[in-house]
Design a protein around this nucleic acid. Structure first.
Lengths: 106, 106
DNA sequence: AAATTGCGAAACCGAAAAGTTGCACATATA
DNA sequence: TATATGTGCAACTTTTCGGTTTCGCAATTT
């Protein structure tokens, strides 16, 4: 079982679950109500998300609330960093180009 | 065939390819040299990446250079935005908390 | 023109993933 | 204590995925 964040967010249902509990912690049943699949299927997604520590449980009596581990999401952001550098550089280059053109017009 | 960016970056080889050609456009053969798989396997990954427009081709004679569509990467960044808001808010809350404690000490 | 090179596409295979069904277990309620 | 509720887990099935092999085609090179 590969179990990294990127594989975890590859599934659209899991992305929806993440977005859902980002707003507020929810129980599996409550989460499942938002989807067309069975509770067990959702439960499986929750297990996968838990395994890669994107979410965590909080037991309250017989209910289990799942909440987002927002810090883990930063790892995706961290990976994006290398590309952000590139697109910012390109933007700056464009910026410089525009500045040069402006200067030439004077 | 689902073919979205998140599914595309789920595979570690594809992420490596993306990082590789982010630096400079490369041909399939050149890319394949960096991996332990066959050229055809890499070619398949390239097709998937092309289909979701994360990379694009540039034909030069019989060679095809693949280059990153950096703008498409921004879509991941865009998705992250909703969570960035959350972690920045939490950071500010922590900040406020610390400020309050500091004030109380006075 | 013939051989070589760079490449994509199709067919096939094994492994992994996603979903369903059925069950077990703990907590709460009657 | 018996029953209902909230949940996870294991077994099974179907689908998807990543890889290899084989082939075909176009652009070079000889």
């Amino acid at each position: 079982m590969r179990r990294d964040i990127f594989q975890a967010i590859a599934d659209p249902t899991r992305r929806a679950i993440i977005a859902l509990i980002a707003l507020q912690a929810m129980t599996p049943n409550a989460i499942a109500e938002h989807f067309d699949t069975t509770r067990q299927a959702v439960s499986k997604h929750l297990r996968i998300l838990t395994e890669c520590e994107l979410i965590k449980q909080e037991h309250k009596g017989r209910e289990i609330y799942y909440q987002l581990e927002i810090d883990k999401m930063k790892e995706i952001d961290k990976w994006l960093e290398q590309f952000r550098k590139i697109w910012e550089t390109r933007f700056n280059q464009l910026d410089n180009l525009l500045a040069t053109i402006k200067k030439q017009k004077k």
